[in-house]
Design a binder for these strands. Structure first.
Length: 339
DNA sequence: CGAGTTTGACCCGCGC
DNA sequence: GCGCGGGTCAAACTCG
């Protein structure tokens, strides 16, 4: 439920089971995050350091149309930060805007989620190639893989921008206003909890998300979004109150850019959903070569600002557009622990 | 019957 | 080259 954040805490968290670099995932992901005081005091996962008000809150960033990278920067992930690693991947614009403020929000900027998946456009390709693979094998099999490889060969596999966040929740799959279809589940190494894979069921929407429970803190659900919704939140969703809550905002967002990036929105849908059981959420961001302009009117989520005084700490500088192009390089400096 | 889930098999990238 | 682990597919199954 949404509770107004009273104060934020800031801390480091190790999440090595969450790293997504595919294989060998042995690198550790460090996250820096902010958590609201909604977290029951005493919660081991979130402690300490005082929140520096000079940092922009996640919500604020989003409201300002901030992209992943800028977000990270705003959260104090300075280029010199040794605690936060990040990977900059994907060429897509970051999911900016579309978010309402985060009561119960813990923001994290992290990184290290590297990844393995394909980007939106590529996804269809990969899907196809897989089908090819199948067909070919049936036909006496040859080459299906080849096609795949050829495709990847020349160009590096593009990666979707990812956006991860941790949520204190009793339920694994959080309602976020979109419709998801589960397409896989895998056991996670070193974790008793499986990871579930979901795809947005909307036609042509290639957004995927992974949901897993933190083995370190079973009360925490880690959700990683990949890709960007190219459609608004389906309002007719099984009576989804959250969807209804945000759809108007979405519709009010005139720019295609905004319409195409709903991550944060998902997030907040989670947080505000009356039945979400969410106690706390922490954000993680990664990737992108942000080229998106700040497009989301802050007024869209003004109600959150009202509820959260911290959201007024800062706003995006007018030159944000430029920063977007700069920030990624900053992140790259921190990707030392992985590629 | 359509939509969504489960689950075993398979592919792929990466480290050794 | 091999093995491991993550990610995806798709047939079978479940549910409304």
């Amino acid at each position: 439920m949404s509770v107004e954040p009273k104060e934020l805490y800031y801390q480091d968290l190790v999440l090595d089971h969450n790293n997504q670099q595919g294989t060998g995932g042995s690198s550790t992901m460090y996250e820096k995050h902010f958590s609201s005081s909604l977290i029951p005091s005493g919660s081991t996962a979130y402690d300490s350091q005082a929140f520096d008000p000079s940092y922009m809150s996640f919500t604020e960033c989003l409201q300002g149309g901030m992209d992943y990278n800028s977000l990270a920067t705003s959260f104090g992930l300075s280029p010199s930060s040794s605690e936060v690693f990040s990977s900059v991947e994907g060429n897509q614009k970051p999911p900016e805007g579309d978010v309402a403020g985060g009561s119960e929000t813990l923001a994290t900027l992290n990184s290290s989620i590297s990844s393995s998946s394909s980007e939106a456009g590529a996804e269809e390709d990969s899907g196809k190639s897989k089908k090819d693979r199948q067909v070919k094998t049936e036909e006496g099999g040859e080459i299906s893989k080849k096609g795949n490889k050829d495709k990847k060969k020349g160009e590096k596999k593009q990666k979707e921008p990812r956006f991860a966040f941790m949520t204190k929740s009793e339920v694994d799959h959080l309602e976020d206003g979109y419709r998801w279809r589960k397409y896989g589940q895998k056991a996670v190494k070193n974790s008793p909890y499986p990871r579930s894979y979901y795809r947005c069921t909307t036609q042509k929407c290639t957004v995927k998300k992974r949901v897993e429970r933190s083995f370190q803190d079973p009360t925490t659900v880690i959700t990683t979004y990949e890709g960007q919704h190219n459609h608004p939140v389906p309002t007719s969703l099984r009576g989804n109150a959250a969807a209804g809550m945000f759809t108007p905002s979405l519709l009010a967002t005139p720019t295609p850019l905004a319409a195409g990036s709903n991550f944060p929105q998902d997030l907040f849908l989670h947080m505000h959903h009356p039945h979400s059981h969410i106690h706390n959420t922490l954000f993680t961001t990664q990737s992108t070569n942000a080229t998106t302009a700040a497009t989301t009117p802050s007024s869209i989520y003004s109600h959150n600002n009202i509820n959260n005084p911290l959201l007024h700490t800062h706003y995006l500088p007018p030159e944000y557009g430029l920063l977007q192009d700069i920030v990624p390089s900053i992140f790259q400096n921190k990707t030392h622990h992985q590629n």
